[in-house]
Computed example of a mutant assay.
Amino acid sequence: MPDLDKRAELLRAVVGYLEDNGVSDLSLAPMAEALGTSKRMLLYYFGDRGALLSQALEAARPDAGQIFDGVTTDEQFVEAARTLWFAVSRGDQRRSATMMLQVLSLATTDPDTYGRYARTTVAVLLKPITEALVAVGYPRADAAARATLVVSGLRGLCQDRLVTSQRARVDAAAELVIAAAVAPGR
């Protein structure tokens, strides 16, 4: 019977390794060595390479649910979206967001390996943001489009910030995306 505490500790270490080393050239032997374990133990706790990758990516997915919980006004939505932007651009979810960007890019050329995770990541981010916008008063279809603007806009800006390191320009653009999400036009 697997030790669940050991498995959880190992999963956190795997996520950290992937955040530091990327996901595109994942090889279990070097990962195991870096983590002070064996390839056999990784396979024991997580199954094959694909299952390990899937579980690690799921554990590292940025979380928007808590941030948008209880939002019922445009002002609260703007504040929640700013909190999300801070979290993914330089806060506690920055490393997860960076790994998510890698996976979303890889999904375009290797959809068999990364496509399901990429689609799920987008859906998991869209759902709480859409629900918050519905609670604010937007019709569901409009809320979904506005949520897409926030998710895709901030994701693109996150990548821009990582590539260019131009924080002020990108932060200003994030404010424009957030404002556009609650702009009149209901």
Rank of each mutant, 00 (worst) to 15 (best):
P128H: 03
P2F: 10
L104V: 10
G91V: 02
A107P: 01
V150S: 13
Y138R: 07
V182P: 06
E9H: 07
D25Q: 15
D69K: 15
F86V: 11
R82V: 01
A59R: 00
G153S: 11
G16S: 05
K127E: 13
V163C: 13
L154K: 08
G36D: 07
L157A: 13
F86W: 15
D74P: 06
A87K: 11
L106N: 01
G47W: 02
E75A: 13
A174K: 07
R61H: 10
R95K: 10
R186K: 06
D25L: 14
R49G: 02
Y45C: 03
P62R: 05
A8E: 15
L52Y: 02
Q159V: 04
G115F: 08
L154H: 10
K6M: 15
G156Q: 02
V103L: 07
M41R: 02
A145C: 10
G115H: 09
V23R: 02
V150L: 10
D92M: 08
L35V: 14
A168P: 14
E75Q: 14
R95F: 10
T83E: 15
L4T: 11
E33M: 12
S96T: 15
E9M: 04
L18E: 11
A51T: 06
E19I: 03
A145M: 10
S105P: 11
A81R: 12
Q55G: 06
V15R: 05
M99N: 02
A34E: 05
S24P: 00
G22V: 10
A29E: 09
A51Q: 11
A132D: 04
Y138F: 13
G47D: 09
A132S: 09
A32V: 03
A135E: 00
A32M: 12
P184F: 12
F77Q: 00
L176E: 07
A179I: 02
L126V: 13
R12F: 10
S38D: 03
L42P: 00
T98H: 08
D48E: 12
G16L: 00
R146P: 11
R95I: 02
A34D: 09
K6N: 02
G137W: 02
W85D: 13
L57I: 14
R186P: 03
K127D: 15
A180P: 04
E33L: 03
R140P: 00
R161K: 08
M41K: 01
V163G: 08
G65E: 12
Y117H: 11
Y17N: 01
G137V: 04
L84R: 09
A172Y: 14
A97R: 06
R169S: 15
A144V: 03
M1H: 13
L176M: 01
S38Y: 08
K127N: 04
E19M: 05
L125A: 08
A60W: 05
D142A: 14
A147W: 08
W85Q: 05
Y44G: 08
V71L: 12
